[in-house]
Nucleic acid binder design. Structure first.
Lengths: 115, 115
DNA sequence: TTGACATATCGCGATGTGACGATATATTTG
DNA sequence: CAAATATATCGTCACATCGCGATATGTCAA
């Protein structure tokens, strides 16, 4: 008596089970990390080159400790990794899906931005 | 002297300017909306068919007023629209980029999920 | 060693978010 | 009309998040 076909399906035709609760939570956590203008900007930058905390802080217009906290978040969830060189710490992207996800986001938000 | 090329570029080769602040904030807002397990689930469902508040609430395992609040959020930011029929309200996706974005997310989180 | 620099961490206050119960509104049914 | 149903809205409380100043740690240079 459901008005829908008995199981919802994703775009690949696979049924989405309620067992995906954990996966949904993971995805939400990941998106929540990304859902901050400074962090999106950092991802954009670090996707193309490695950057130090100071460089990222300056580009994003935030204090260095604030940048450091954002970077820690992104490192904890596996987006970034860091390499220490002298007194500097360079961050780079390690999550391979980030580029595609960012492309999607940019595709949505820069679509009509040329005018 | 900067260790980077003088301007960061996105994957299309376009330089990313600091003027994108507003765009970054918009993108972050959009991601923040998506960054909730119940809302992701709702988007998955509503991408394939229209659903009433009650149906979504049941599938997601939340109270109907809670579902209604999530739906209001997604309507306010342009993801969904609603059509009233009798005492029911059907929601459907109106944001055309949502499908691609969801695909990206699912690609990330269902990749190794078969084992 | 001392001092400057680069980064990380901590505690705090402000603000935002999420879920809930209660209630309001609209619609159908009897 | 009254009762039941479907949805929306509101007030509230618990909790998370954000940015900040202060401080700690580690590193280079004189």
């Amino acid at each position: 008596m459901a008005t829908k076909s008995n199981q919802p399906r994703n775009s690949a035709g696979r049924p989405l089970k309620r067992a995906d609760l954990k996966t949904l939570a993971q995805a939400a956590d990941c998106l929540r990390i990304l859902a901050h203008p400074v962090r999106i900007r950092m991802v954009q930058l670090v996707l193309h080159d490695r950057y130090t905390v100071g460089e990222l802080a300056e580009d994003c217009g935030v204090l260095e400790n604030v940048a450091s906290e954002h970077l820690r978040l992104m490192q904890r969830c596996g987006f970034f990794s860091s390499e220490k060189e002298g007194r500097r710490v360079y961050y780079r992207v390690t999550e391979p899906h980030l580029e595609r996800i960012l492309d999607c986001i940019e595709g949505r938000f820069q679509a009509g931005a040329s005018t």
